[in-house]
């Protein structure tokens, strides 16, 4: 101990600072995170477990317990037999409606928004920034205030209650966030590239398809994730702008689960819920960090 003051001696602490893996700080940290994760995972667990039980087991058992006897009957019933109103062909109808709605809506909305973003960055015209500002403000305004005017516009155009009507609505309401996304991404592409292409004689569409599009595939994927989950999860527009035989999956799911007629079949309800959540969940788990990038884009100011 005495030679601690002598700097020439190789005494005292040496090497890595000892770190206890089980320090109180780490126990607290991971403890809290694990508790939080349990809260987050619980509903998914309950949802899947309930959907795999028979009704008798649901009635007597614990909702957190795994099924004693696994049955896929609730899934079959939810998919093919569950009733909404007079239709008893299950959620499959809603599923296919949602596919029918989501695919063209995603394509059209991304196509238009990407061109918007491109025009806003590289082909600024008088007032383009004003339109963009209105668009961004529009994304914060409650949809409710624009619902009825859109109903009138669609009715005038003769597409109210049709698939195309809903596609237009999704394109309109997806436009602010997507345009922002593309505009921000395109602004990071060096302007020299655009200028060089113009000198080489490429026009508006030439530059868009030959330069911008191939350079921006990642952001198109981000937009795709954003739109697929967003449109699949939509409820309000589905209710307002379609007729019952075109109802998307979310609307049909709510009608099945919250219908007051008959005995409640909780296992079928949960199977239906899992089925409806499956598409966005798959998109989420497959896309990983791109999903985070998509939702963060909404927070990046323009």
């Amino acid at each position: 101990m005495a030679d601690l003051s002598m700097s020439s001696a190789m005494t005292g602490p040496r090497g890595a600072k000892p770190k206890k893996a089980m320090s109180p700080r780490n126990i607290m940290l991971y403890g809290i995170l694990i508790v939080v994760c349990v809260y987050y995972l619980l509903p998914l667990w309950v949802m899947v477990m309930t959907s795999l039980k028979g009704m008798p087991e649901v009635r007597i058992g614990n909702i957190f317990a795994p099924p004693v006897e696994v049955t896929f009957q609730p899934w079959v019933k939810a998919w093919a037999e569950a009733c909404t109103g007079l239709n008893c062909d299950g959620l499959s109808r809603g599923f296919w409606n949602s596919v029918l709605i989501t695919v063209p809506s995603v394509i059209v909305s991304i196509a238009i928004a990407s061109v918007n973003g491109y025009a806003l960055i590289n082909w600024k015209f008088k007032g383009s920034d004003i339109f963009f500002t209105i668009l961004i403000f529009g994304s914060f305004i409650p949809y409710q205030i624009m619902l009825y005017p859109i109903v009138i516009l669609l009715r005038e155009a003769g597409i109210y209650g049709t698939l195309w009507g809903l596609i237009v609505v999704h394109t309109i309401f997806g436009m602010p966030i997507l345009t922002l996304l593309f505009r921000n991404y395109f602004s990071s592409i060096p302007e020299e590239l655009f200028k060089a292409a113009r000198v080489d004689g490429a026009g508006f569409w030439g530059i868009y398809f030959r330069i911008m599009l191939p350079m921006s595939l990642p952001i198109f994927v981000v937009a795709l994730i954003l739109q697929v989950t967003g449109i699949w999860n939509d409820f309000l527009f589905g209710v307002v702008f379609t007729k019952p035989d075109l109802y998307p999956m979310t609307v049909q799911l709510n009608n099945i689960v919250n219908s007051v007629q008959g005995v409640k079949e909780y296992n079928v309800n949960m199977a239906a819920t899992v089925l409806t959540g499956l598409v966005p969940l798959i998109v989420y788990f497959v896309s990983g960090k791109l999903f985070v990038r998509g939702i963060a884009a909404g927070a990046v100011k323009g």
């Binding site: 987050y40 995972l41 509903p43 989950t229 409820f235 689960v257 969940l281």
Partner: peptide, 27 residues
């Protein structure tokens, strides 16, 4: 992060129905 964010990918309808079930007084 994946665990904490996955509910955000789900619709409010799915969210609402799951919690309605978990908060079901009987079961």
């Amino acid at each position: 992060r994946t665990i904490m964010l996955y509910p955000f990918a789900l619709s409010f309808i799915v969210t609402g129905l799951v919690w309605q079930w978990i908060l079901n007084p009987e079961f």
